[in-house]
Write a protein that binds this DNA or RNA. Sequence first.
DNA 1: TTCGTCCTGGTA
DNA 2: TACCAGGACGAA
Length: 270
Amino acid sequence: MPELPEVETARRAILPVLTGRRFTHVEILRPNMVKDSATMLREAIASPVMGVDRLGKYLFVRLEHGWTLLLHLKMSGRLGLRQSADPHLTYERIRFTLDDGSLLIFNDPRTLGRAAMHPTESVMKLPSLKTMGPDALDVSEDLFLKRLMRRKGPIKRILLDQSFIAGVGNIYADEACFLAGINPTRDVASLSTGERRTLHRAVLATLHKGIDNMGTTFSDFADLFGKPGKNQHSLNVYGRRGKPCVMCGNPLSSTQINQRMTVWCETCQH
DNA sequence: TTCGTCCTGGTA
DNA sequence: TACCAGGACGAA
């Protein structure tokens, strides 16, 4: 599931490939993934690429002439690069042809991913973006404490809320809580200042480790050339419900928060 | 605030 | 064959 580290890994991979190039063609194999912006996508796509930015889990491919190609990988999307003669990837949904003949592929088995073209000047006014909080990697301790002040409800739910900080998803939320030694079901209002600081450090450390490991791969995520990340080997709680805690050996607990599987250790997280 | 929906491959 | 995974959005 692409979260901030997977999206950042993708951004770093496509940045040198796309910058200065131009798309010559876009082939939309799944219209539901571009919704109503197919026409604009086809018309604006030929503008040269100036760069690739990221905010939370969104990628912004900056094009000349005031256009931004917005990509969200959602659950199972990944970007791939191949030559036209290479075999197809298994779930190719959108193919972007580059002016050197290579293909940037939006691969997505579940087709929940989205691609859209918007004028750069108004892209941040989109409903999904204008309420978004700061990127998790850019949040200082002071800002984290300040933004946490007004919040209540289970800590896990706050971490998943993209209007709080952007980029944390189910995997890294559970891992950050484990690293902080904080029970993800606890009401955020009950956290001491010290615990809030610890949680902030844990969120950053968890995300940076994910990036250093080139993302977490179960079945879907891989880099541009199909190489999987290796962060899945570093996970302490995600996907390990009922299994022994890596710290104390007691079986890990689980519950649903925000309809998301949440796993933690009753002994090590308070 | 909570729940359903979009989607479909993988697994039990 | 039924169920599960889940990010974001929209409806109740």
